[in-house]
């Protein structure tokens, strides 16, 4: 299935947000996920299904002013 991850199209064999983060190697609690410009709470990763062309944003802590 083709989805957009952080602005880039990717082929990925995943059904949920939990699958996506696992496949991409995001671990621990220092990242956050949004699907189609809506934040997905951590306890909803397993329950949140993804569909073709969904836009997934995965963000991590960074320097900021």
């Amino acid at each position: 299935m083709k989805i957009i991850i952080n602005g880039e199209a990717k082929e990925i064999n995943a059904a949920t947000i939990a699958d996506v983060t696992k496949i991409l190697g995001y671990e621990g609690d220092y990242f956050a996920v949004a699907k189609n410009l809506t934040c997905v709470p951590r306890n909803q990763y397993d329950a949140t299904a993804i569909a073709e062309n969904d836009e997934i944003e995965i963000l991590m802590p960074m320097q900021g002013g």
Binding site: L24, G25, E57, L59, P61, G65
Partner: peptide
Amino acid sequence: VSLRRQAAGDGN
């Protein structure tokens, strides 16, 4: 602090 796109393997 801020949030930015970053690949999982990059460390932090």
